[in-house]
Design a protein around this nucleic acid. Structure first.
Length: 475
RNA sequence: UGAGGCAUAGCGCAGUUUGGUAGCGCGCUUGGUUAGGGACCAAGAGGUCGUGGGUUCAAGUCCCGUUGCCUCAACCA
């Protein structure tokens, strides 16, 4: 029976979490494997989550004066070679088109792994005067990176994302934009996805190829591993020099501009699943859930039940809620499990007994609690319940994370910490050798600098500590 | 690229040791009974056994080749 298989797989949650994850993703019909290795076909239910993420982010981008635009999928290889670090970093994972129209191309075309190079090229044409700055554009698109090992949503060869790119007349302003967008991501992750994140600067080793500084937001999955959920890069003049993005300043001289870029991807959907998912399947935060509330009829053939469900659905939809009415002829128990697996935040059970009493039974997905509410104020009750679920999910995730942050002052301490499923804060002398030694011995990487914290000495070499680093094993 | 494994119905698998009518569970279709936590009965549909060759009266099964996929290692903002 399907359920037994599912539960058996769930039982492996601690040992083999990614397998559990993959099974849930496939069973809930979010995606299928794609025909090309490492790609996925996003089904309507999964794509609806993405659309809601887009909607919420676009609102926030607009508030920052960012406009949406679109740039080509294919980028001449020569564009990549203009920024040395960038090409070196991305070369191993770029897919290249060499033949088109039946003929070998004079210049190979890269399928974009990210668009700094093509957008930089366009910025150089667009930017003339300081009056046009800052310039802020964002594009929603697909990118391709030829990864060796892949997992649905977390690492796929092709994925959907948004990449924002800004141009500024001063370094300070570009740096500020980098930090502002990082803040937008953090607020979005916490308020919309109910995922608490730690933001901070990345080490030289972990930074974006071609950036002056990379800032990331790291989320703790419930096995204690970290997922890089978004990044914001301060690019300084690295790309504007390579692509000749210059402007005429108010003092009449030509100056090189400063740029930033920032992005989040469909990996966020993976973050939601791995942060909130439980042994029954998905748990989706109400703000981005494709279906916020499902109505399950009981004894649907009895007179008046279907009609009552339909009128309740209409009432809730009128109030702007995303509602489903499951009138299939599966048994109620089957429906309960099905919709729970799909992560719908609130389920309403409506049967003859309830209709007679003027009540409805609401079950919330996050705690699985059931409660009776009057049918009369259904909209208010459901809305309040959704808000409550959203808040509780964030709190629950935050508590889990905060109770899994530990300090260490030795290599063994770091190893024990990450093996116990924790984020480990430890002092670092700042040298590359110590950072690499930790990765070698513990399989943990430096996720971000812990801002404003200090330590006595480096956990590896014992020299004076310059920074505190948050170490974790990562997806 | 190194090591190991897998390929049989939509999905998951058995059958290969010892060659002899193509099987099971789930799902699907039809009809009926059910319904407050994955219901039940009955009847059905569905197969070039990854692929090419060989051995044999006879190959899913044995032999040789080949292709694809998976796991680990490596690689990976």
């Amino acid at each position: 029976m399907a359920k037994e298989t599912f539960v058996e797989q769930i039982a492996d949650i601690e040992q083999d979490f990614p397998q559990w994850y993959t099974d849930v993703v496939l069973k809930t019909k979010l995606v299928d494997y794609g025909p090309v290795k490492g790609t996925m076909v996003i089904r309507p239910y999964g794509y609806a989550i993405w659309e809601n993420i887009q909607k919420e982010l676009d609102k926030r981008f607009k508030a920052q004066g960012v406009e949406n635009a679109y740039f080509p999928l294919l980028i001449p290889m020569s564009f990549f070679t203009k920024e040395a670090e960038h090409v070196e970093g991305f070369a191993p994972e770029v897919a290249v088109v060499t033949v088109a129209g039946g003929e070998k191309l004079a210049e190979p075309l890269a399928i974009r792994p990210t668009s700094e190079t093509i957008i930089g090229t366009m910025f150089s044409k667009w930017v003339q005067s300081y009056r046009e700055l800052p310039m802020k554009v964002n594009q929603w698109c697909n990118v391709m990176r030829w990864e060796k090992t892949t997992r649905p949503f977390l690492r796929t060869s092709e994925f959907l994302w948004q990449e924002g790119h800004t141009v500024h007349s001063t370094a300070e302003e570009a740096e500020e934009a980098t930090m502002t967008m990082l803040g937008v991501y953090k607020e979005f992750a916490e308020n919309c996805l109910a995922i608490p994140v730690i933001t901070g600067k990345k080490t030289e080793k972990e930074k974006f190829a071609g950036a002056v500084a990379t800032y990331g937001m790291e989320a703790m999955m419930h096995d204690g591993k970290s997922l890089q959920a978004g990044t914001s890069h301060y690019l300084g003049t690295n790309f504007s020099e390579a692509f000749d993005i210059r402007f005429l300043d108010s003092d009449g001289t030509h100056k090189t501009a400063f740029t930033s870029s920032w992005g989040v991807s469909t990996r966020l959907i993976g973050a939601i699943i791995m942060t909130h998912g439980d042994e029954r399947g998905l748990v989706l935060p109400p703000v981005v859930a494709p279906v916020q509330c499902v109505i399950v009829p009981i004894a649907a053939r009895k007179g008046g039940v279907v009609e009552a469900c339909e009128s309740l659905k209409a009432e809730l939809e009128k109030a702007g809620l995303r509602v489903a009415f499951d009138n299939s002829d599966n048994s109620p128990g089957w429906k309960f499990n099905e919709w729970e697996m799909k992560g719908v935040p609130v389920r309403i059970e409506l049967g003859p007994r309830d209709i007679e009493a003027g009540k409805m039974l609401c079950a919330r997905r996050d705690t699985l609690e059931k409660g009776e509410y009057p049918l009369e104020n259904a909209v208010e009750s459901v809305k309040a319940l959704l808000d409550e679920v959203q808040k509780n999910m964030l709190e629950k995730a935050r508590k889990h994370r905060d109770s899994h942050i530990v300090y260490a002052d030795s290599m063994k301490g770091i190893l024990d910490g990450v093996e116990g499923g924790n984020f480990v804060k430890a002092g670092w002398c700042g040298c590359r050798a110590c950072e690499e030694k930790i990765k070698e011995e513990t399989a943990a990487t430096a996720r971000v600098y812990a801002e404003g914290e200090t330590a006595e000495k480096c956990a590896v070499c014992g020299e004076k500590s310059k920074h505190v680093i948050i170490y974790a094993r990562a997806y």
